[in-house]
Write a protein that binds this DNA or RNA. Structure first.
Lengths: 117, 117
DNA sequence: CGAATAGTTGATCAATTGTTCAACTATTCT
DNA sequence: AGAATAGTTGAACAATTGATCAACTATTCG
């Protein structure tokens, strides 16, 4: 009984499990996918991404729009930047942020459709 | 200075902020979107959803496939069920789970494409 | 009924996460 | 150079999360 350690069931559908195991993408890919979705899994970041989807904004614009401190916004922007979901460009003291690419917009819209029944 | 409480900047692009504020979806919708993505924001759940995307499985199958306890799997399945991402049907003692609809598969694939560069 | 099996549940605990605060860097203007 | 402004950063803390364990329910079989 090789599965005794994790599962005491006797009705394991071994053919199904084996077949699906063979089809599963590499674990590392799925971990990266989880990490990607984690960026969308927060109200503040969703708001920021949607806002940036409508146009370029600086940190202060986002702070005013969402009623949050520059610090909080900046921390989240850093996460989004590291995840390659937004790009930034500096103009003097002001740093403007935009969505990184159309893919980000597509992911947002796809989920939004599902939420809108 | 109406924004003094949240932001000390003087270069707020008020026209941009106002325009975007008008375009933003209701906050409640964005919160629900965040909650939806939260379901995809975990390696275990991503693995489970991908697996179920390949075929119906019972709790034990998933436990064996992912090397986790029935309890852990069951807890996550409950979250997925409450989020309407999976459906279940009972057959005797065994409860089989499947993806709720094609939309779930689409969301998974959309993200997967982005992760696969 | 009673034993065995499949699955669920609630409490607990460690780990992760998001915001705040204060201090910091970078750029502009005088 | 010095002051002012835009943005970043790290530590700290509360809140949330995911796995584990033990106890529970539901179904089948003898």
């Amino acid at each position: 009984m090789k599965n005794a350690s994790i599962c005491d069931c006797e009705v394991i559908h071994q053919e199904v499990v084996s077949r699906i195991q063979a089809q599963m993408p590499p674990k590392a890919d799925l971990a990266r996918l989880g990490a990607l979705y984690k960026m969308f899994a927060d109200s503040t970041r969703i708001n920021m991404l949607f806002a940036l989807g409508y146009g370029e904004m600086c940190v202060c614009d986002l702070a005013v729009l969402l009623g949050m401190t520059k610090s909080a916004i900046s921390h989240q922007l850093k996460s989004l930047r590291l995840a390659n979901l937004v790009h930034s460009r500096r103009e003097g003291q002001v740093i403007y942020y935009t969505l990184a690419d159309e893919h980000v917009r597509e992911i947002l819209n796809m989920g939004f459709e599902h939420v809108s029944e």
